[in-house]
Simulated assay, not measured.
Amino acid sequence: MERADAPAPAAWRNLIVATIGFTLTFWAWDLIAPLGSDYHDRLGLTSVQQSLLVAVPVLAALLIRDRPDRAVPAGSLGQRLASAGRLRVTWELSALYAIGFGGIVAFGVYLPTYLRTGYGLTPTDAGTKAAGFALLTVIARPFGGWLADRVHPAVVTAGALAFVALLAIVQAFDPPLDPVGTVCLLCIAAGLGTASGSVFALVSQVTPQPQVGSVTGIVGAVGGLGGFVPPLVMGAVYSARGSYSIGFMLLSDLALAGCVYAYVRMRTVRGGAG
Rank of each mutant, 00 (worst) to 15 (best):
R65V: 07
D66Q: 13
R67S: 13
A71N: 09
A71Y: 02
V72D: 03
A74E: 15
A74G: 14
G75K: 06
S76H: 10
G78P: 02
Q79A: 15
R80L: 04
R80V: 03
R80F: 02
A82Q: 11
A84H: 08
A84K: 09
G85Y: 01
R86L: 11
R86S: 11
V89M: 14
T90P: 02
E92S: 14
E92V: 14
E92I: 14
A98T: 12
A98R: 12
A98S: 14
A98Y: 11
G100W: 01
G100K: 03
G100R: 02
G100A: 13
F101R: 04
G102Y: 07
G102R: 07
G103Q: 05
I104E: 07
V105C: 07
A106N: 10
F107E: 04
G108P: 04
V109D: 04
L111R: 05
P112N: 04
L115R: 03
L115T: 01
L115P: 00
R116C: 01
T117E: 15
T117C: 07
G118F: 08
Y119N: 08
G120P: 01
L121V: 07
L121H: 07
T122P: 10
T122D: 09
P123Y: 08
T124G: 10
D125T: 12
A126S: 12
A126P: 04
A126I: 02
G127H: 03
G127D: 10
G127W: 07
T128E: 09
A130Q: 10
A131S: 15
A131T: 15
A131H: 02
A131R: 11
A134I: 15
A134M: 15
A134V: 14
A134G: 13
A134L: 15
L135M: 14
L136H: 05
T137A: 05
V138G: 02
R141T: 14
P142I: 01
W146I: 04
L147P: 04
A148I: 06
D149M: 05
R150I: 03
R150C: 01
H152F: 06
H152E: 08
P153M: 09
P153A: 10
A154T: 10
A158C: 09
A158F: 08
L161M: 12
A162F: 10
F163Y: 11
V164M: 01
L166R: 03
L167H: 12
L167E: 00
L167M: 15
V170F: 12
A172W: 06
F173I: 09
D174K: 15
P175H: 10
P176S: 05
L177M: 11
D178N: 13
P179N: 09
P179I: 10
V180R: 13
V180K: 08
V180N: 10
G181P: 03
G181V: 08
C184R: 08
L185W: 05
C187V: 13
I188D: 01
I188V: 15
I188Y: 02
A189N: 09
A189S: 11
G191K: 00
G191D: 01
G193V: 01
G193D: 00
G193L: 00
T194K: 06
T194S: 10
A195T: 04
A195M: 08
